[in-house]
Design a protein around this nucleic acid. Structure first.
Lengths: 268, 268
DNA sequence: GGCTCACGAG
DNA sequence: CTCGTGAGCC
């Protein structure tokens, strides 16, 4: 970036996190939306394809570099960016041989960007739930170990936790259930306590903002959702967050993902 | 029809036969095509849905009555018409309890219309092949037993037989193979010998006209197809056939059926 | 290659 | 409800 570029008025940089629920199934939708909204960085989860199947060429034609970490059938994360990502890291720092592809991180300009897909946990008390809590411990340790601190870090993804009652359409119904238990919320808040801010909530404390709706029971038309996706920002970045929101349009139309993209704009 | 209607110049009535390879999967395509081409009668094969799943309402909105005979997963035949079909008959006349839904017939105006889906036969000599030949015997018997003769009969469908070498992209390659064996061709020609005419060939003796192309190996772009779908017409109707063809456009675009519709126009 | 299914997972 | 899989069929 030139000195002129720095001093000129810069357009806010948009970062988005979207659980796409199969990249191959929704590639056309993704490309159209990239062309329309031109985000600087897109973190994807549940790409559900292995690295050989990743549509590198189509995304390159749409103007995006891509780094990705996938597996067959399940999980899979990626980061798309208009500038080239560097120093790509796969998995949580202390477990490189994780069979589940849930974490990728890369340096994009001055940002340290994570795209993460937390385990669902099935039901409170299940072995899948124990794995989820353990995974959150590992994530926290990994972020604490992040070189150069968290100031320029963004942790974007599907956390599979609705952090507060405001993030739940019917808190009484969901009380204590998976994604809403106190233990899960504590794990999520521990990340925020360690120097990260939930950007959506910095600007929008109001209830009724959701990022996920069950495919069943007309949950979306009734807006019976949860907000389980987030963009967490380190101090320097949180201070520059000028806008944030959820793109509900992406949960409409034919064969939508069950998640809507969560976005945050950062000024210069 | 009024006396005025009879004497006025009438637009040719188009009859189409199309193996749709899943009606539910291609309903939108079908509706669009009905709106564009407005055929009077459409015979469908491989609807692959049971009668409860048949999209009666959507077709009614598109201006079509429908009679159908389906089953779960496989086979399934239907007749769509702009005027109401009557005297609907299911299965081959001498076997009402056939577990395979391959035949439906109905009276539409002065026409006796059959929509038929012949067995594939797998490989010459297989038990599926024996079933196919037996099925052709039953079909021939059933047509011979047709009350009031075959003059006003149309037998439309996927015959799973390429009647002559002109109906095969590479006759040497296919010689003796399933859909091209002499025994199968004899069974098909026996229908024609009994007072029915292959309408496409009445007007188009030339080779290179196909109605089916394998999904694999770029068979359609290379036009490596077979003509295994037909509209057979009784004497009175054959004499009134003014045009015939195959709608190759329907084999293009996203997720086409492997078959293209075969059509014939009948003047007054 | 595209359909069906049943299964497992979300 | 909507994904993936793998098997069976065409």
């Amino acid at each position: 970036m030139t000195a002129v570029g720095r001093t000129a008025k810069e357009k806010a940089m948009r970062v988005v996190s979207w659980n796409i629920n199969s990249l191959r199934k929704r590639l056309e939708r993704l490309l159209h939306w990239l062309g329309e909204t031109k985000p600087a960085v897109v973190c994807l989860q549940e790409t559900k394809c292995n690295d050989e199947q990743f549509p590198v060429a189509a995304l390159r034609e749409a103007g995006y570099h891509a780094v990705f970490h996938g597996q067959k059938s399940y999980n899979g994360v990626a980061i798309l960016a208009t500038t080239e990502p560097h120093a790509v890291r796969i998995g949580l720092c202390d477990q490189v041989d994780d069979p589940q592809a849930r974490v990728i991180a890369a340096t994009i300009g001055e940002l340290q960007v994570y795209s993460i897909y937390a385990p669902n946990g099935q039901a409170v008390g299940s072995t899948a739930y124990a794995y989820k809590m353990e995974w959150y411990n590992r994530l926290a340790r990994c972020l604490r170990a992040q070189e150069s601190g968290l100031e320029r870090v963004l942790v974007c993804g599907d956390f599979n936790v609705a952090p507060n009652d405001e993030d739940v359409h019917d808190p009484a119904l969901w009380r204590g259930a998976i994604m809403c238990s106190e233990e899960e919320r504590a794990a999520f808040r521990a990340l925020c306590g360690a120097g990260l801010s939930d950007t959506l909530r910095l600007l929008h404390p109001e209830p009724g903002l959701f990022s996920w709706w069950d495919y069943r029971m007309l949950a979306f038309p009734k807006n019976r959702g949860l907000r389980i996706d987030a963009i967490l920002a380190g101090k320097d970045l949180a201070a520059k967050c000028t806008a944030a929101g959820i793109d509900r349009e992406m949960r409409k139309g034919k064969e939508p993902s069950d998640h809507a993209p969560v976005w945050a704009d950062f000024g210069s």
